[in-house]
Nucleic acid binder design. Structure first.
Lengths: 191, 191
DNA sequence: CGACACATGTAACACGTTACATGATTTG
DNA sequence: CAAATCATGTAACGTGTTACATGTGTCG
């Protein structure tokens, strides 16, 4: 629900119309994340349906429509800006991939891990280059690139840890198995 | 598309029926990510529609249905396991949040950053505790927890970098502005 | 029998996303 | 005038997700 709330945030600065919202969304995110204009309109409809924004006849600079954020919308926006308790960590596609790959016949997990690792490192190098080329001028771009770099670094580290864990398991073969723990979900959930 | 492909992976080991798939999905992911049974059936329908799995009358252990992966399904699975080039980094909700929060009236971005940081550190402490309590018995759980810890660490580091960047900008107020760079999307895109 | 687990399924909705249609306005 | 740009909109589809209905088998 990033787009939804992002539009809400943009409208909190004042009435705007569809195209303007698209352009500003892309500008705010360093031109990194393109946003299909159509999605702006569909999202606006849904926001209007939920009473978070309202159409405003007065606030039009010309032939465009003007959308305004409502009080309810402002509440929603502030709630979104506030950190929320994540009961359960978000599903991570790569983690699922590796975990299921362990038992896919004809597939070597560690090969999958290494292949992904290579790609990730390539990506990091590319982003590092972009960062150097762009210079400190565009802070928004720098922030997005930073985020991606930190994220990729974390993923690479995890892959290394995972590879190590799986390697250990492989060498511990034919030892006595360890009892598995039950009801881990309860322990993970946040009260 | 994690669920879709995860089911495909489970079926690659042999014919299985709905409930079994749900149970195995949860088992493989360390019981961390619950999967609504209903979703298994809807996903199976979609997989069948796309010719990735097929219903198999023979392969039933009792009253249950047996689904088998097709050749096309195996191809799909292998393609999923292979790392793919990400043209554009995935949209990151927190990044968008911070970037738009910079201009939301009545909101101090750095407060938003610090609030999120606190929550993230709390989460990390909780997961570290879980990891210690669970012990090295359940590797799958350990891998999921590891992934979350590495991810959270990356996010915290980014928040610190972002806070620092924004702080710099604030102190550089009333200096001459720097020209913004155009067409950054092309530079970001992977050829 | 009643409760419970097993097992399947569906209708409905959410958001994200795109391709396409349609006017209006500007500009060469 | 024709092309390009601005601007709005919609129909359709994809995955994820849940609440709910339904039937079967088992066990105390």
């Amino acid at each position: 629900m990033s787009v939804r709330h992002a539009l809400l945030a943009l409208l909190s600065e004042g009435p705007k119309y569809g195209l303007k919202l698209q352009q500003e969304f892309e500008a705010r995110t360093g031109e990194v994340w393109p946003l299909n204009v159509g999605q702006v309109y569909t999202t606006l409809q849904r926001l209007e349906r939920d009473g978070l924004v309202a159409f405003d006849d007065e606030a039009s600079d010309g032939p465009q429509k003007g959308f305004t954020i409502t009080d309810h919308g402002r509440e929603e926006l502030l709630a979104w800006l506030r950190p929320s308790v994540a009961e359960i960590p978000p599903r991570d596609e790569l983690v699922i991939k590796i975990l299921v790959a362990i038992q896919v016949p004809g597939v070597e997990v560690r090969d999958v891990i290494q292949a992904h690792r290579r790609r990730l490192v390539e990506s990091m190098q590319r982003y590092t280059r972009i960062k150097a080329e762009a210079g400190p001028g565009d802070m928004r771009l720098a922030l997005v690139v930073d985020a991606e770099l930190f994220r990729l670094e974390g993923v690479v580290r995890w892959l290394d840890a995972a590879d190590s864990r799986i390697g250990q398991l492989a060498s511990e073969r034919s030892d006595q198995p360890v009892g598995s723990s039950e009801a881990t979900l309860e322990r993970l959930a946040i009260r």
